[in-house]
Amino acid sequence: MENYRGYFNKILQVFFPNEFDKIIADTDRHYSTISVSTAFAITSKNPIDKRLDFSAYFLALIKTLDEKGESFDTIRQICLQIVTAYVQPKNKAQAFFKRLLPKLTNTLFGQILIKQFHKRTSTNSNSEGFIANIITDKTETFGIGYGIDIIECGICKLFQKYNYSRYASILCEVDEITSSLAGLKLIRSGTIANGAKKCDFRFKREI
């Protein structure tokens, strides 16, 4: 089991104490099918693809709760509680490194990392994965010198493939939380999940 499963279990036990075992069993059953579509991510050279296994389990849970008859709002609430708990730093060291990475953008080491990241994210050998461009122009990135344009979203492709596109935007909401943990405020004009042509990630440093 991947380490994220514990976060699902903890929240689902709170919401469904009497139906927990069945919900987990149904989620695991759906995941066994959905995860076939994301198996490529394990060996993908594109680092953003690594989040697709997590997304596949999310989709499996969403499918389970939807079939159970839960409302969109309830499913959204459960999903956001799970992912919010998951992305929180687990210790002081993790919290430190989350805030350290943005500070490296204007260093030589940081620029090397950004170039390598762009090289690996701007193409994808699998049509079901992510494609992203890294933006380094300071005039376009509030002086930080780092931004991301997601051109093709692997999560949206996955949810669309299984006819659950309307739920994909739930995961977009978490980006503000992860940005804040890095000491940044997310500035975004749109997401692919909500009909935009790209997901533009721009950041401002929090005071």
Rank of each mutant, 00 (worst) to 15 (best):
M1H: 10
Y4W: 15
G6D: 13
Y7I: 05
F8H: 02
F16Q: 02
P17I: 07
N18R: 09
N18M: 10
K22P: 02
K22Q: 15
I24F: 01
D28Y: 06
R29Y: 10
Y31E: 03
Y31I: 06
S32E: 15
I34Y: 06
S35T: 11
S37C: 10
I42D: 14
K45D: 15
N46L: 01
N46Y: 02
K50D: 14
K50V: 13
K50M: 11
S55K: 04
A56G: 12
F58W: 11
F58C: 11
L59K: 04
T64D: 00
L65I: 05
G69N: 05
G69I: 07
T74Y: 09
R76V: 13
I78H: 01
I78G: 03
L80A: 02
V87G: 04
P89S: 07
K90H: 08
K90R: 11
N91W: 10
K92L: 14
A95R: 03
F96P: 01
L100E: 00
K103W: 06
T105C: 08
L108G: 04
Q111I: 00
Q111W: 07
I112Q: 06
K115S: 11
K115M: 04
K115Q: 11
H118V: 00
S122D: 05
N124E: 06
E128K: 13
I135W: 10
I135A: 04
D137C: 05
D137N: 15
T139H: 12
I144A: 06
G145E: 05
I150D: 01
I151Q: 07
C153Y: 01
L158T: 09
L158I: 14
K161S: 08
Y162I: 10
Y164R: 07
Y167P: 00
A168S: 14
I170R: 00
E173A: 11
V174M: 04
D175C: 00
D175T: 07
E176K: 13
I177A: 07
S179R: 05
S179C: 09
L181F: 09
A182E: 12
L184I: 03
K185R: 09
L186H: 01
I187T: 05
I192W: 04
A193G: 00
A193N: 00
A193P: 01
G195T: 06
A196S: 15
K197A: 14
C199Q: 01
D200W: 03
K204V: 13
R205T: 15
E206G: 08
E206P: 05
I207C: 07
